[in-house]
Design a protein around this nucleic acid. Sequence first.
RNA 1: GCGCUCUUAGCUCAGCUGGAUAGAGCAUCGGUUUUCUAAACCGAGGGUCGAAGGUUCGAAUCCUUCAGAGCGCGCCA
Length: 577
Amino acid sequence: MNIFEIYLEKIKNIIVKLSKENQIVIPDNLNSINVDIPPAQFKCDISTNVALVLSKINKQDPFELAQNLSKLIKNKDKNIDTINVAKPGFINIKFNNFFWNDFSKKVLNLKDEYGSNTKGKKLKYLIEFVSANPTGPLHVGHCRGAILGDVISNILIFNNHNVSKEYYVNDHGNQIMNFTKSVFFRIREIKYGEKFPTNNNELYPGDYIIDIAKDIISKKIKLEFDDFDKISNKLKKLAIEQSLLMIKSNLKNLGIFHDNFQSETKIIENKEVQLVIDLLKKKKFVYEGKIEAPISEDNKDWVERKQLLFKSTDFGDDKDRALQKSDNSWTYFASDVAYHNNKINRNFDILINILGADHAGYIKRITSVVEALSNEKNKLICKVSQLVKLIKDNKPFKMSKRKGDYITVEDLINQVGKDATRFIMLSRSSDVELDFDFDKVKEKSKENHLYYVQYCYARICSVFRKINKDINEDVENISYDFNYGEEEIKILNKISQWPKHVDIASKKLEPHRIPVYLYELASDFHSYWNMGRDDKKKRFIDEDNKIANDKLVFLKIISNTIKIGMQIVGVNTPTKM
RNA sequence: GCGCUCUUAGCUCAGCUGGAUAGAGCAUCGGUUUUCUAAACCGAGGGUCGAAGGUUCGAAUCCUUCAGAGCGCGCCA
């Protein structure tokens, strides 16, 4: 029930027919023809640029062409009230009451599927997000990407795609060793009263390491904590297990659940790295060579040497990328190459990676690898979420790695709650930095968009409560002979735009469009609600505590649309506030 | 130095798969509650869409150059 799509189809059919009858010429590609939301001042429901697109190729005045086409569009269409041609050659269509009756009925019947694109091809997506190192709890920095990935998944699922959500666990490498060592020292601290070394800045000082140490001790596993090297592998497994539990609990509190946790170690143990590098060698994308020293400040200790490199410059990267370290172990990149090959072999149509802004420089090489391996150009799509600037007491709040000086997801949820966190993290495009103001987030006003939208839903629920109806029950057995006025149609019109916003959000992987739309819809509704003060006809319940059928359907489809949207965002719609 | 992202009202941002007179919120000023939720609503002022070129019938949107901000640029992960 996307009226923009329906009319686009109709218009395309008309011009294709005309071209077959040799009455007009049409371009091979009709993609630039659109049916869009007209600016408010034109007081119509949809508009199209067909005439403007066709005028040049037909050497005809667009205004005149538009007039001719509009006659054909209007012809026998029982939905159209008026059809006008505006200045350069836009065709503006206003629907009649019959249409809005029919529209409200259809939306009502679609229930929680309204806005979902059921026509498109069903694709298999793999979306990798969060993938934070399992060396500690999630902090605010991870939060935005986590929510972004989750809601992109929700949108794709809503549009009938198949989505697998994955977390890549970097349980291999130096960081993990440092982390394990930290746990080791904490265990010795607890067991033998040895002081945790403070002079080693490779170690993780955070208090959560103590918790992990305690948890491991409480398991009473037979393990001697005297020689780190002897037990490092066993302890590593235990420590990672604990920190993953912590991370999963953080994610759960954000309302996020992954389908799969893919271990880096497993990929290395399965020899998948060697396999993929052989494969790339065969394709001539891997060679032995030298790369230049990095430009960063302290590259004095840079030793130029021959090493195994991936030819990412073939795909437009600045330089080729190292696959092997000097001790012959694989680089992080190498195992990630194997991981992506693993993804490709699982036969997904599209791979999506959600990355933090600090990893944006990594995109080129990884998309290059995926292209080299799959021979498909846009197989892997990387979305970057920009930084979150924390603001407390009107001042930027800087997080540092020093102990206790960073805000975890847990802190965030305890202070502002899951829903507000989700809604605000999504309220801006992922391409721009986001100010996260602790004080404003907790405010319960228009400033806080979550409450503004929830309040709209709660207001509708209050009407249902008043007349002893259940908001979740279906509206049935109603004859549709409503006569909606201008104000109601304004909102119905807004609702008609919902599928279009979902569609763009889905195609461009831009979830912020959903909260932005919901805010606008809520605003229209609040506005309507307040009309009831001056105009009794605008109130939902009459003197006899009854509601008219048109008002009932009206409320039902508004609340329905809000609920669908809020479910995609992953927040609650309380019935009372 | 190179790469990615950003630059729209005093502030925070929508709008960008090219379209018509560029929209919200906050802040400022002025109003609304015998009424289904005032966590709300209505009104007013506020703009060279960073700058300059280009493509186009048409540019905030696409391209080029420049300026400013953020992030990144290791055999780290």
